[in-house]
C-alpha cells in the first residue's frame, strides 16, 4: 500500500532545481492525497449508502425477527436460517432457481460456442449476425416478457399453433409450473446467447493464428484443432462466461413476475424462484428479517460461484503458457 507523499510517482523525471521550487512541489504533493479524498468523498458517500450499508445491514437483519408492521423486532440468532432449511417454498425456489440457472447457462454455452467458432473465420456476415444475436441482450425485460407471454399463450400463442401444425397437442406453457420453468429457460437462453457469442468470439479471435496454422500444417483436422487448441485456450473466458451467466441467472425475477404471476383475469401459478420468494416474504408478508436470510443465502451462492471461478482460472495451465 502506498503511504503518504513519498509514493507519488508523478514528479518522477522532473529535475529538482532550487529550494523554492522544491518546497512548492512538496506542498503540492502533500495536497494530492487531500485532493483525492475530497474528489472521492461524494462518490464514496454514495457507495457507502447504496452498497456497503445495505449489504451489512441486510446481514444483520437476517438475525432478527423483523416484521415491518410489528414494533417488536427481537434478535433470534440463526432461527431464520434454521426455518429456511425446512421451508418448502424456499427449498423449491432454491431447486427451481438452480435448475433454471444451470440449464440456461449450459444450453446457451453449447449453442453459442459452435456459432462463435464459425463466425471467427473472416466473413462478411459476421457483424450482421453479432448485431442480431445481441438484440435480446439490450432489449428491456418487461416488454420482452410480455411478448414471450403472448408467444406462450395457451389459446392463441404461435408456439402452440406451431405444435398444432405438426399434430402435437397444445402445451400449457405458463400455467403448469413444471413446464413454465422450462419456458423460462427457453427465454433465458434467447436473452443471453448473444452475450456469450460475442465474448467467445473475442476470445477465439485473440488466440494467436500461428497455433492453429501450425496444427493445420501438422495435419490436425478442424475437430482436433477445436478440442486441442481453441477450447483449452478459451478456458479462462469460458469459465468467466459460465460463472457470470450463472450468477445473473440466479437473480432471475422480472420474467417470472411478468409471465407466471398471472393477472386478475387469469390467475397463474407462479414458478417459485429465489428472488420472487424474497420479494414475497419481504414485501407481501413483511417478514423482512426472514427475507434477508434468504437474500444472504443468495449472496453466499453467488460468492461461492465466484470463488470457484477464481480457483479454476488460477489453476489453469493454459493461462501460464
Amino acid at each position: 500500500m502506498a503511504s503518504g507523499a513519498e509514493a507519488t510517482p508523478l514528479a518522477v523525471g522532473v529535475p529538482a532545481d532550487g529550494m523554492a521550487l522544491r518546497l512548492r512541489r512538496r506542498l503540492r504533493r502533500a495536497r494530492i492525497p487531500l485532493f483525492c479524498y475530497v474528489a472521492l468523498l461524494p462518490v464514496l458517500a454514495l457507495f457507502l449508502y447504496v452498497r456497503i450499508i445495505p449489504i451489512g445491514f441486510g446481514f444483520l437483519l437476517s438475525f432478527y425477527k423483523w416484521n415491518l408492521i410489528s414494533p417488536r423486532k427481537p434478535f433470534v440468532g440463526f432461527d431464520n436460517y434454521v426455518t429456511l432449511m425446512s421451508d418448502e417454498n424456499f427449498l423449491l425456489a432454491l431447486k427451481n432457481t438452480t435448475i433454471y440457472s444451470f440449464s440456461t447457462v449450459a444450453l446457451s454455452t453449447v449453442l453459442a460456442l459452435p456459432l462463435a467458432v464459425f463466425l471467427s473465420r473472416p466473413g462478411r456476415l459476421s457483424a450482421f449476425y453479432q448485431t442480431v444475436y445481441f438484440l435480446p441482450v439490450i432489449t428491456p425485460l418487461v416488454p420482452m416478457s410480455i411478448a414471450w407471454k403472448w408467444i406462450y399463450d395457451y389459446n392463441y400463442g404461435i408456439l402452440n399453433y406451431g405444435l398444432s401444425l405438426v399434430g402435437l397437442p397444445a402445451v400449457p406453457w405458463l400455467t403448469d409450473p413444471d413446464i413454465a420453468l422450462w419456458a423460462l429457460v427457453i427465454m433465458g437462453v434467447w436473452k443471453v446467447i448473444g452475450y456469450n457469442l460475442v465474448l467467445f468470439l473475442v476470445g477465439i479471435r485473440n488466440i494467436p493464428h500461428e497455433y492453429l496454422e501450425a496444427a493445420a500444417l501438422d495435419g490436425a483436422s478442424d475437430w482436433q484443432r477445436f478440442w486441442r487448441i481453441t477450447l483449452p485456450l478459451l478456458k479462462p473466458i469460458l469459465l468467466y462466461v459460465l460463472v457470470t451467466a450463472t450468477i445473473n441467472a440466479y437473480n432471475v425475477f422480472t420474467q417470472v413476475y411478468v409471465m407466471t404471476l398471472g393477472s386478475q383475469s387469469a390467475p397463474g401459478q407462479a414458478v417459485r424462484m429465489l428472488v420472487l420468494d424474497i420479494y414475497t416474504n419481504g414485501f407481501q408478508f413483511f417478514r423482512m428479517g426472514y427475507a434477508s436470510a434468504e437474500a444472504v443465502t443468495l449472496t453466499l451462492i453467488v460468492l461461492g460461484l465466484t470463488v470457484v471461478q477464481f480457483g479454476l482460472v488460477r489453476n489453469d495451465p493454459a493461462k501460464e503458457a
Partner: peptide, 26 residues
C-alpha cells in the same frame, strides 16, 4: 497514489458481485 487506494478500489469491485436483489430490503 494515496493511502487506501487499493483497498477502496477492491471494495468497489468486490461489492459489485453482490446482486442488487440481495440487499434491496435493507
Amino acid at each position: 497514489r494515496f493511502p487506501g487506494r487499493q483497498f477502496l478500489f477492491a471494495l468497489v469491485l468486490a461489492t459489485a458481485i453482490v446482486p442488487f436483489e440481495a440487499y434491496m430490503i435493507p
